[in-house]
Structure formats: C-alpha cells, structure tokens
Simulated scan of single mutants.
Amino acid sequence: MTLSGNQKRKMKSAARLYAVQALFQMEYSHQTVESVMAEFEEHRFGASYDEGDMQEGDAALFALLMENAVNYQAAIDQMTDRALVAKWPLGRIDPTLRALFRAAGAEITQSETPPKVVITEFVDIARAFHPDGKEASFVNAVLDHMAREARPEAF
C-alpha cells in the first residue's frame, strides 16, 4: 500500500508529538531512552488504528528524534538557554515545553527538514498542549532563535 503525501505528513506530525510525550515521560519517570522508545513503539506504533483515535506515527522519525534529543541534549539545552530571555533558565520552563524544545532542537540540528517546517510543526504541538495561545507564541520565538543559530543558511 502506497501512502499519500498527506498520510506521510500526518505520520511525521504524530511522530513529533510522540517524541515530545516520550521525552517528557523520560524526564518525569527517570526511564531510559530505550525503555521509553520500546513502550511507545509497542503501544503507539504497534496499536490498531482502525478506530481512528490515534494517528499512526513515522517510527523512523520518532527514533531519530529520540536518539538525537538524548545524544545532543547538552548542546540543544545550551542553544535553548541562549534563546530564552535572561533570568529564565531552561529549568524553569514547563517540562512539556522543555521536552518540545529538545525534540525540535534535535530535528533542527540533526536533519535536513527545513527549519520553518520544524517550527510550524512544533508550534502546533505547543497549541495542542496549551490551547490558550501564549505558549505557542513563546515556542515560535524560541524555535526561530534556535533555528537561526543552528542553520543560518536556511533563512
């Protein structure tokens, strides 16, 4: 079965969301990346999607985001800190947004995905977690700063 472009985009969007959730879970429960990835692959990627309650994700993108977010966490966190306003360190940020910045930072720094696509995708995820809109604007500004630092040639 061949997937349409729209189906592929939805699967990539789901993988990004799952990466944010998995990184949050790692921080909250102190689980290893391997155990969280295995759990997500079994329960998210291996689940039945007939009922339409959950979007199948792109397992390869999920694995890439997870591995790179963990392997490059220190560099991504430092880049995030530089993008945050003074006196507002990463440790004070909502843990969901911290996970989002790590997943987005992994994709910005370790993939060929255009930064504007990454920013749009992760701003949409921020809106899903924080529908009031404040956080979406904040996420947009931080990710724009991170992308311009990491890949200035893309702007």
Rank of each mutant, 00 (worst) to 15 (best):
M79V: 15
L61V: 01
D77P: 04
Y72F: 10
D81E: 15
A63G: 03
R82D: 11
L61G: 01
Q78W: 15
A83S: 15
M66N: 00
F62K: 00
Q78G: 08
D77S: 12
R82N: 09
Y72W: 10
M66Y: 01
A74H: 10
E56W: 06
D77I: 12
M79R: 15
N71K: 09
D58P: 06
R82Q: 13
A60T: 00
A60F: 06
L64H: 15
D58K: 02
Q73Y: 07
Q73K: 14
L61K: 00
R82F: 02
I76Q: 07
Q55V: 10
T80R: 07
F62N: 02
E56M: 13
Q73A: 13
T80G: 06
D58E: 12
F62T: 03
A74W: 09
M54A: 12
A74Y: 09
E67H: 13
V70T: 11
E56V: 05
G57S: 02
F62P: 06
I76D: 05
G57Y: 01
I76M: 08
Q73C: 08
A69K: 04
A75H: 05
D81K: 11
E67L: 10
A59H: 09
L84I: 01
A75V: 11
A63W: 04
N68G: 05
A69E: 10
L61F: 03
Q55C: 08
M66V: 01
M66W: 00
M54W: 06
E56F: 10
A75W: 04
E56R: 15
A75N: 06
F62G: 02
Y72A: 13
M79S: 15
A83W: 11
T80M: 07
M54F: 08
I76N: 04
D58Y: 09
L61A: 02
A74F: 08
M79E: 13
G57F: 02
E67R: 14
A83I: 11
L84T: 02
Q78N: 14
A60V: 01
Y72P: 03
A75Q: 12
G57D: 06
E67S: 14
T80W: 03
E67C: 08
